[in-house]
């Protein structure tokens, strides 16, 4: 039956699409084309309800309602796939942001500690106490 071939091929295509390396813009374009087709089909099937049943009979499905269900399942799969990918990309961005924050904070803390170590070395030297060498002071930072 035609419908089985169509469905299996569609599911495989969605699976491959999911494992494909990311192409940001083409991704978005496919999403939009898909939405456009969805709107057209929705309008047509509202204006000509018998059209769905006709297509369904043509490819070996009993009723138009069944065809609608199959289409819905595919649409859901595509939606899951694209949402997952968007999530992965979003997470990657969050990671970069968080890492920048972490490293910036670490850099600020290191600078503060270095300054404090130098300060205390200077104070000790000024007060005549045997001051630790600069190297030792810097070691405390790492």
């Amino acid at each position: 039956m035609w419908i089985q071939i169509l469905l299996v091929v569609a599911v495989i295509v969605i699976g491959l699409f999911l494992a494909r390396p990311t192409g940001g813009d083409s991704h978005l374009a496919i999403r939009r084309l898909f939405m456009f087709a969805f709107v057209i089909v929705a309008i047509v099937s509202i204006l000509f309800p018998q059209w769905l049943s006709y297509i369904a009979n043509l490819i070996g499905v009993g009723r138009g309602a069944d065809l609608l269900l199959y289409a819905l399942v595919l649409a859901f799969l595509i939606s899951v796939a694209t949402t997952y990918r968007r999530n992965v990309q979003l997470n990657r961005r969050i990671t970069h942001l968080a890492r920048e924050i972490t490293l910036a904070r670490a850099e600020a803390e290191d600078a503060l500690r270095r300054a404090a170590a130098l300060d205390s070395a200077r104070v000790e030297r000024a007060s005549g106490v045997e001051a630790p060498g600069r190297d030792d002071a810097a070691d405390q930072v790492g």
């Binding site: 969050i94 990671t95 968080a98 890492r99 924050i101 972490t102 490293l103 904070r105 670490a106 790492g142």
Partner: peptide, 13 residues
């Protein structure tokens, strides 16, 4: 020396 991630990201991160 402790660096702090603001949120949980995972071991690889």
């Amino acid at each position: 020396r402790v660096l702090r991630h603001p949120v949980n990201l995972g071991q690889g991160a």
